[in-house]
Design a protein around this nucleic acid. Sequence first.
DNA 1: AAAATAATTTAGACAAGCCTAAAAATATAA
DNA 2: TTATATTTTTAGGCTTGTCTAAATTATTTT
Lengths: 219, 219
Amino acid sequence: MMLSQTEENYLKAIYSLTYTNSNNVSTTLISEAVKTKASSVTDMIQKLAEKDLVHYKKYQGVSLTEIGQKIAVEIVRKHRLWEVFLLNKLHYNWDEVHELAEQLEHIKSETLIDKLEIFLEFPTHDPHGDPVPDKEGNIKHHNDTMLSSVETGKSCVVIGIKDSSDPFLKFLDKLQIQLGNTLKVISKEPFDNSMLVETTIGSISISNQISKNIFVKNL
Amino acid sequence: MMLSQTEENYLKAIYSLTYTNSNNVSTTLISEAVKTKASSVTDMIQKLAEKDLVHYKKYQGVSLTEIGQKIAVEIVRKHRLWEVFLLNKLHYNWDEVHELAEQLEHIKSETLIDKLEIFLEFPTHDPHGDPVPDKEGNIKHHNDTMLSSVETGKSCVVIGIKDSSDPFLKFLDKLQIQLGNTLKVISKEPFDNSMLVETTIGSISISNQISKNIFVKNL
DNA sequence: AAAATAATTTAGACAAGCCTAAAAATATAA
DNA sequence: TTATATTTTTAGGCTTGTCTAAATTATTTT
């Protein structure tokens, strides 16, 4: 099925709204996500329903069909792999990759994204800590180990972040904390739960508010 | 100036037709290049003329303005850098890169293509031997040294090919001759002008018809 | 130089995706 | 439970880029 960029964006929006909200997503919510008016959403929803990509009953909201869901996950896969490429290979900052990936995710090719995945050596997570779906659309949700819970003296690898807000991303750029970096917890301060961490650029003190928002893999 | 993908494609088509044909390009020629009808071309040309991207007088054909030319060269730059990426990094075959680059060249970003250029270490030519325009739009046309004119005993580096036909590209893939490869001319056969060439995979015999179509840089 | 042919432009129409304004349905409050 | 407010849908219209068919201009042929 050959979908337009717009149609793909609607599917992606419905997909993520289904997780963060109810099962049946309202037209208003979608309209905010894709930045149009609710009436335009109704039009598009009806088109997608004709193509069996969404379930739709008037006034009852929308949900993805199995095919619709499959396509949405494919787009998510593309988005996340492109984000990894932009960050790891082109050295974009953490906070700059999303917008560009929004464009790149719509490139049409049977083979491109699989070749990109090989080139990137099968990353498991994107720069925001979200898992990269595999070729078949399976998603491994990670086990939520945060930097804050790493024991003193132990090392770990940064695999993602929880808070994707712009200020937080910029802050991490400043600390030069990047995906794949190894961090070693030197000591913890019981008073405010801050920790002294050994990074690639030396030892830095990290507040609990920060360490609670960094996903890591224990070594 | 924010142009649509379609507008960009028209500019690119006019650009390349200007070189391979007359200075004033006809609507019919453009219609073949962008795969539409001549009447559609007229519509679009008038729109581009309004935006000062082309010079246009009814029934007299089209040529690019300075701005139009500048934009066209930017697209060519993007196209060629993406081709290098696809070939060198994702290991696509020579004959597969063009189509995908047609999509990637339209990604909108102020910084992406310059970062890609750095990542690719400033390639001077694309896989078809065409020069990559620099940031300012300057193009260095190369000096047309063909493999066939390399002296016996001398080495050279493959920088491009002249014939971009599908069979030829597939043939090169089979011989494993790639951009950047070093070739050494071991001997030449005066009878049919074929040559024995040392490649990365060993010595192979190359006919004059082939060696006439491979651009090289002498070492 | 007039007639025939070919190329180009205009006119009117269509699909995709969006909009505004009004109508219909649902949800909330009195 | 009726009245009010909110959400959703419909109706009609706009723009972009395309098309066909007809009209106009340019080019060739005789």
